[in-house]
């Protein structure tokens, strides 16, 4: 089983649309949506949810008001500004304290040092993750609660479950829609993968972010294939990206043209290859052929 991660560095380059198209082209794939902050793959895959699981991203502090003596130790030890002081109504009694759940980093230092042991330090419920069936194969995906954090752990969980299913079902490919950026969630998305496909666009931002995310993949020792979407927006730069990628020892997976059919496919809740039989679909197919050749080690160019 080969695990292929699709990431972009910069958002909006068409990563999820391409992942959806790859899902339609791959034979018997397992899919994982690790872009948990902005999970969109389900909009075109229309999953039927088979399993729902709670997700706890870590621990969170909570102060029991009736045990709080207002000594302010928690406020003093918290480095994250997560303790809120609530003045007493009568101006004479000591204030009360409460934890701001959004600012809390779950370090537990307040709980450790609280003198009256008023701080409960417990597993937080941050969201849910799902195992679903789609028209192309099994999909593992997740949804975080409002303003919930800790997507790095969730990404690992989603990927591990998807990997396990891919092994059980003997699926040749696991396709992972990775997270944007270069931080915690994207690191969690790509460590240990067989191939990273970086979807970029020929813009100064796209080029800039590609360099950063390619460095990240290199840092973790993962082979990289670069795909330039919307290539005809700036053909000169698209070509420069290819030349630079090859000079840096990255593989080039091809280009895809700018096409409004990408949005039309989204609206129709279809992947681009199902929706478009023309040039766009053809270009995507070509990219997929090259990606599988690279992942399978049949193309070492």
């Amino acid at each position: 089983m080969k695990e292929i991660i699709i990431i972009s560095g910069k958002g909006g380059t068409g990563k999820t649309s391409l992942t959806g198209a790859f899902a339609a082209l791959a034979e018997n794939p397992v899919l994982a949506d690790c872009d948990v902050d902005a999970a969109d793959l389900h909009l075109i895959l229309k999953p039927k949810i088979l399993e729902t699981h709670d997700f706890s991203g870590g621990k969170q502090a909570r102060i029991e008001p009736d045990k709080c003596t207002g000594c302010a130790t928690c406020e003093e030890v918290c480095r994250f500004g997560a303790i809120r002081r609530i003045p007493a109504k009568d101006d004479i009694s000591p204030p009360f304290f409460a934890v701001d759940p959004v600012a809390c980093e779950g370090c537990g230092v307040c709980a450790w040092f609280c003198i009256p042991k008023a701080v409960q330090f417990e597993d937080a419920l941050n969201g849910h993750w799902f195992v679903s069936e789609t028209r192309f194969g099994c999909l593992v995906h997740a949804k975080l609660g409002v303003a919930e954090e800790n997507s790095g752990k969730l990404v690992t969980l989603v990927r591990n479950r998807a990997k396990q299913i891919a092994k059980e079902r003997n699926c040749p490919y696991l396709l992972v829609d990775g997270s944007p950026g270069i931080g915690c969630p994207v690191i969690a998305s790509l460590t240990g993968a067989d191939l990273v496909v970086i979807v970029t666009e020929p813009t100064v931002s796209g080029e800039h972010d590609l360099a950063r995310v390619a460095d990240l993949a290199k840092h973790f020792g993962i082979p990289v294939a670069v795909c330039v979407n919307k290539a005809d927006i700036n053909p000169g730069m698209a070509d420069r990206i290819r030349v630079n990628a090859e000079a840096r020892g990255l593989s080039f997976a091809g280009t895809v043209p700018y096409d409004k059919a990408v949005t039309a496919a989204q609206v129709a809740q279809l992947t681009i290859v199902e929706h478009d039989r023309g040039e766009l679909g053809k270009a995507v197919r070509k990219v997929w052929e090259r990606v599988t050749a690279l992942a399978d080690g049949k193309d070492t160019k």
Partner: peptide, 30 residues
């Protein structure tokens, strides 16, 4: 972008937030 730790940290303390979207299913879902 997004709705997790980094986004929240940047937005916290702002007086007003402008949310930029595009009129596509992905854009509106996010």
């Amino acid at each position: 972008p997004g709705t997790s730790c980094p986004a929240i940290t940047a937005i916290r303390g702002a007086d007003f937030v402008l949310l930029v979207t595009e009129p596509t299913p992905f854009g509106l879902n996010d």
